[in-house]
Design a protein around this nucleic acid. Structure first.
Length: 595
RNA sequence: GGUGGCAUAGCUCAGCUGGAUAGAGCACCUGCCUUCUAAGCAGGCGGUCCUAGGUUCGAAUCCUAGUGCCAUCACCA
């Protein structure tokens, strides 16, 4: 039984005994730093059933608890707050429990629990990844890891948007102006090469529009009539008809892009258990729509298009099948969701990591799946996140105003290199070891910078202002880890022996603060999972490190004057390092042995 | 116009189901490297928690209305 449960019961008993009242709920909170105490009971809610002044009630209750609960050594009452001081032996016992648990805070998948599939990344194959994709990837990966750590089996997946008019645009441009360039012949990453032709298409297309407008067309007409666009549309029809030349080109260019993406994913440290391709799924869902039509969930308009009426839910009517019988995005998403559950029958819920511009789409999608009667439809979650904007506004691939993912990763590594070399603490490291370290630190700075922000908030990214390496940052936390490793390397005794964890020591306040923060980790993991929020993990880890650094600075560890103290402090340090590593693992950030 | 999201220090952000005097980091200022890594620590400066009402013992947090920014409302994805 943990201390809070013990206290909960004791307080209920106490109030029964003193005032003869039954209390349903006791409200606890961590005692604020400015007051003495470890855990605080809020007295105000008791006033509903006990008339009297809160200080008096608090005092009586405090006296009762001090006498009846051995872990409580003293108390004080400030206004309606009863601050309880816990004994050192309680803290040491608590620490011993924590120290024994190897993956403290992280729960193995429970066999009876349904799995969760997390979708993220899901790029188009006509342009390289940019900063917006980075946020998506980091969030999706991290949330997947967090859900896993909360005790569920997780599948990571993505759906690759590998077909459609936009893909044909870059294909067409390459055909016309590519001179048979390949990634090999140009030494360019495949996704970059294809992206260049997507931009090229747009430039030429705009020229054609201007020409047509000069000839007297309206702008709208010009946009629809431009020969390039017509040609791209033809190409799409050929693709859908299975024209072998078009399909071959499509396969070739997509493969270039996949090779490029694979490199970026590797650099970013994300992975997937299963990829879905739109070219395989875009026809899915049509049968479901027919079935739904029969059941009366959908209805058909005179022109043959199929809709769902969501006006009862406060939404509009939404199309699910075009009048010519072809699928829209929604049709496909319905089909893909069902396909995924078929492929992985143990999956009981899906998480979609997609920007908040698609909030409406997912609201509708989830409603439709619910109306279709799937029992897993109640476990669908749109992990909706805010856009990453530049000071100039939105990033636009076609206009070249994007922060390229590969460039940014390289920048971060370079900055880490500059700072590290200036500090010059890496004697004895080979060049290869150094490069790995610079990458770890640079990537840590970037990932932490993005993940510490609440997903639903938008991020303003100014490329001119570099990401910090000091203060509330990834490197700050990595640094704390590295310092602890240094201590552990120097500790020439067996601190892992459980039997030698001291049980009677006078603890310093700073030791207790670290311990209290450490003990929170399991509930933080659950909270992060419930809220789909890596930011919860990031903020927790930062607080832990702040507490630890304060301890580290003011209290001797290896130089402690007493062997038992030395033992405890090394053990405490080690466990902090383990939790840092575990927490950062949930964020997809690595930690260095030295820095 | 309808719907949804966001609004906290000069800047970037925390603030869990309502609880004490609203917290960090950056920037600026002051101290601390002859003891375990100073990417650190200790301290100072800095607030109309967008506005106005309401609920209550108590509101940055919940409700209503308004303001501002963003997104969305296609036989696009």
């Amino acid at each position: 039984m943990n201390i809070q449960d013990t206290l909960d019961k004791a307080i209920k008993d106490g109030l029964q005994e003193i005032y003869n009242v039954a209390i349903e709920n006791v409200e606890f909170q961590a005692t604020r730093k400015d007051f003495e105490g470890d855990i605080t009971v809020v007295v105000f809610p008791f006033l509903r059933v006990i008339k009297g002044n809160p200080v008096e009630i608090g005092t009586k209750l405090g006296t009762y608890l001090t006498e009846s609960v051995p872990e409580i050594t003293k108390f004080n009452v400030v206004k309606g707050f009863l601050n309880l001081v816990l004994s050192d032996s309680y803290f040491l016992r608590n620490f011993k429990n924590i120290y024994q648990i190897e993956n403290f805070g992280i729960i193995d998948a429970k066999p009876n629990e349904k799995s969760v599939m997390v979708e993220y990344s899901s790029p188009n194959t006509n342009k390289p990844l940019h900063l917006g994709h980075i946020r998506n990837n980091l969030l999706g990966y991290s949330v997947a890891e967090i859900i896993k750590a909360s005790g569920k089996k997780v599948y990571k997946t993505q759906i690759i948007n590998d077909r459609g008019i936009h893909i044909c645009k870059s294909m067409l441009a390459w055909q016309k102006w590519g001179n048979s360039e390949t990634p090999e012949s140009t030494s360019k990453k495949g996704d970059k090469l294809v992206g260049d032709y997507y931009v090229k298409f747009d430039q030429e297309y705009k020229k054609e529009i201007l020409d047509l407008v000069a000839k007297g067309f309206t702008e709208d007409e010009a946009k629809k009539q431009a020969p390039l666009l017509l040609e791209a549309q033809q190409m799409l029809q050929k693709w859908e008809a299975g024209d072998s030349d078009v399909v071959d080109l499509w396969k070739t260019m997509n493969q270039w892009v996949y090779d490029g993406f694979e490199q970026t994913y590797k650099d970013l440290g994300v992975d997937f258990d299963k990829n879905y391709y739109e070219s395989n799924t875009y026809l899915l869902g049509k049968d479901i729509v027919s079935e739904g039509l029969e059941k009366g969930i959908f209805f058909k308009k005179e022109d043959g298009s199929v809709w769902i009426d969501l006006t009862d839910e406060g939404l509009d009517e939404k199309i699910v099948l075009r009048s010519d019988g072809t699928a829209v995005y929604m049709t496909q998403d319905i089909g893909t969701a069902i396909q995924r559950i078929k492929d992985y029958p143990d999956v009981g819920g899906l998480v979609y990591t997609v920007g908040n511009e698609q909030d409406y789409h997912f609201k509708v999608l989830f409603l439709i799946l619910k109306k279709l009667g799937f029992d897993w439809a109640k476990n669908l979650y749109h992990l909706s996140y805010g856009m990453v904007d530049l000071p100039s506004g939105k990033m636009k691939s076609r206009e070249g105003t994007v922060v390229d993912a590969d460039d940014l990763l390289l920048d971060m590594t370079n900055t880490a290199r500059e700072i590290s070399e200036e500090l010059g603490k890496l004697e004895g490291y080979t060049d290869g070891e150094k490069e790995i370290l610079f990458k770890t630190i640079g990537l840590g700075a970037l990932k932490y910078h993005i993940l510490k922000v609440d997903p639903k908030k938008r991020i303003l990214f100014d490329p001119k202002e570099s990401i910090d390496f000091q203060g509330n940052t990834g490197p700050f936390i990595q640094y704390a880890y590295a310092r602890i490793q240094s201590i552990l390397r120097k500790a020439d005794f067996n601190y892992d022996d459980l039997s030698i964890i001291p049980s009677n020591l006078d603890l310093e306040d700073k030791e207790k603060s670290v311990l209290k923060q450490l003990a929170l980790f399991p509930e933080i993991v659950q909270q992060a999972a419930n809220n789909y929020s890596p930011a919860v993990i990031a903020n927790y880890t930062y607080d832990l490190v702040k507490e630890y650094n304060s301890f580290y600075q003011s209290i001797p560890i290896l130089a402690a004057d007493d062997d038992k103290k030395k033992m405890f402090r090394v053990q405490l340090s080690k466990k902090v390092a383990v939790v840092i590593k575990g927490a950062f693992g949930l964020l997809g950030i690595e930690v260095p042995e030295r820095m």
